[in-house]
Each structure stands twice: as structure tokens, then as C-alpha cells.
């Protein structure tokens, strides 16, 4: 090969190069077709009053103006009292769920209980997890009457599933070493749970109770819509009867109280998981931090 032929060689190399064909992405086609098709079929077939959608922005604006333009501070005491009832429902409901779920969590943990117990308890915990609080509430109202008691029990029952399942997972995540040490010192099953498992898992379980309390506040704020106590009743009735100023004040109280409780509870949770401050920085369990 001589120098003058070099450009030709380079050209040849490009000509001879085998370029891979661009693969056809079936997966992308299927996903796109599914998303677009699903949306169109759904939107066309659903019995929704689509034309009214055009009115929505104007209506929302009007509502916002009415709600936040006619705020009256005289509504604050009522709104605060109703919100306190929602907080009370959420708190007591979480307490009930904590008490009910605690023994169940050990029965559902694979490193503590036998296979049958784990299987049965898991299924038992799955049911309340899948049913929304409102459905519990409407079923409890004929039994306990309108008011906060029905709401409290509804929150308690439906949270038992989630708290129980998560507590069981926390228990399963505990270190095996201390359990082996307890066994090697001749401990019974109960003693093993009390001294090798509880100290490991209690902070995380309590932190999750608090986290669930935060979520339950959101739930209890709307339970009043079906008459199960709390600020939901005030919201629903004032929106229904177009008392926009009062509804707006109730909405503001809900949002503010939710944010404040989230913040305080979040700080307490982090402190519980981290443990007391110490001189030497100790290894932390990052798994639980990621969880919340």
C-alpha cells in the first residue's frame, strides 16, 4: 500500500464496515400502544361529562376566590375544635392498631413463628390493608352511631393490617446473632423475644406507629364525610351548602395542622431511630432511614 492510496483505503473501510441494523423495539411499541390506547378507550367509553371539563378552570377559580376571599376569623375556633377531633380519632385509632398488631407481628415473623402461624397471620393482616378506612367507617356507623367512635375503630382496624405487616418485616430484619446468643444461654422463646429481639426492633416499630399516625390524620380528616367524626363533616356540609368562606377556613386548618404534625412527628421519629446522641458516632441503620 502506498501513501496516495490511503484515502481510498479509509473509504473502503467505511464501505465494507457492517453496520448493525437498528433493532426494532417491540417493547416500546407495546407500551406506547398500551398507554395511548388505554387512555383513549378509557376516555371515550367512560360515562363522564367531558364538556363540563371546559368549565372547570373557571369554576375552580371562582371557588378559590370565594373560599379564600371570604375568610372569617370567627370560624377558626369551630375549625380548630373539629380538627382536634380528627387528630384524636387518628391518635386513638393508631393506639388501637398498635396494641392489636403487636402480638400479630410476632406471629407473622418467619424468624419467630412457625410456618402455619406465619401463613395464617399474614393473610389475616392482608384483609384490612386492602379495605379503605371509609368502608370500615360506613359499616361501623350503624353499630356505634354517627360520631368519632366509629371513625376511631375504623382507623384502628384498617391500620392494624399495615402496622402488623411492617412490624413483622422489621422483626424479620433483626440480627440473628443476639438471638443465637440468647439461645446459647438457655433462654425460652419468650425470653428470647424480650431480650434479643425487642431491644433491636422497638425503636423502628415505634417510629412506624408515629408515621402511621401522620397518615391516619389525613384519613381521619375526611371520615366526617360519611359522618364518622372530625373535621370532614364541617368541610362536606359547608361545601355542599356553598358556605365557601367557612369551608376555606376549614381547609386551611386541615393543611396547616397536617404540615405541623408531620414536621414534629418526623423529628421525633428520626430521633427515635438514631438513638441518644453519643460521643463516638456509631454505625446507623440506614435501611430504616430509607424506609421513611
Amino acid at each position: 500500500m502506498t501513501g496516495t492510496q490511503a484515502p481510498t483505503a479509509a473509504e473502503k473501510r467505511f464501505e465494507q464496515a457492517v453496520r448493525p441494523e437498528k433493532p426494532f423495539n417491540w417493547f416500546r411499541l407495546i407500551v406506547t400502544a398500551g398507554v395511548v390506547g388505554g387512555f383513549l378507550i378509557g376516555a371515550l367509553s367512560v360515562d363522564a361529562n367531558w364538556p363540563r371539563l371546559t368549565e372547570m378552570p373557571g369554576e375552580l377559580w371562582n371557588m378559590a376566590v370565594l373560599m379564600f376571599g371570604e375568610l372569617d376569623l370567627a370560624d377558626v375556633p369551630d375549625a380548630a375544635e373539629s380538627m382536634w377531633e380528627s387528630v384524636a380519632i387518628a391518635w386513638l385509632g393508631t393506639m388501637i392498631a398498635a396494641v392489636l398488631s403487636f402480638p400479630l407481628a410476632f406471629l407473622a415473623a418467619q424468624n419467630i413463628s412457625g410456618r402455619v402461624s406465619v401463613g395464617v397471620t399474614r393473610q389475616l393482616l392482608n384483609v384490612p390493608r386492602a379495605i379503605p378506612e371509609i368502608i370500615f367507617a360506613v359499616a361501623l356507623i350503624p353499630i356505634f352511631g354517627l360520631g368519632p367512635l366509629a371513625g376511631t375503630i375504623a382507623i384502628g382496624l384498617s391500620s392494624t393490617g399495615t402496622i402488623g405487616k411492617l412490624s413483622a418485616e422489621i422483626i424479620e430484619g433483626s440480627q440473628r446473632g443476639p438471638i443465637e446468643a440468647a439461645d446459647a444461654s438457655g433462654a425460652t422463646t419468650l425470653q428470647r423475644i424480650r431480650w434479643a429481639v425487642l431491644p433491636q426492633v422497638m425503636p423502628e416499630i415505634i417510629a412506624f406507629w408515629l408515621y402511621r399516625f401522620e397518615i391516619n390524620i389525613r384519613a381521619s380528616a375526611v371520615l366526617g364525610v360519611v359522618g364518622a367524626g372530625g373535621i370532614g363533616t364541617m368541610l362536606q356540609q359547608n361545601i355542599e351548602f356553598r358556605e365557601w368562606g367557612t369551608a376555606g377556613m376549614a381547609l386551611i386548618v386541615v393543611v396547616l395542622v397536617t404540615i405541623v404534625i408531620d414536621t414534629v412527628s418526623g423529628m421525633i421519629r428520626r430521633r427515635i431511630i438514631r438513638g441518644p446522641k453519643t460521643k463516638t458516632s456509631s454505625a446507623r441503620d440506614t435501611r430504616t432511614d430509607a424506609m421513611f
Binding site: 367512560v46 360515562d47 363522564a48 361529562n49 367531558w50 363540563r52 371539563l53 368549565e55 372547570m56 369554576e59 375552580l60 371557588m63 364525610v225 368541610l235 362536606q236 361545601i239 355542599e240 356553598r242
Partner: peptide, 13 residues
């Protein structure tokens, strides 16, 4: 849902 029912009436919308 409560707010949108007030804004656009009852139903799926």
C-alpha cells in the same frame, strides 16, 4: 373529590 363535585357536578368526571 368533594371540591370537584362542587365544581363540575356529580359523576365520573
Amino acid at each position: 373529590a368533594l371540591l370537584f363535585v362542587a365544581a363540575v357536578g356529580i359523576g365520573a368526571l
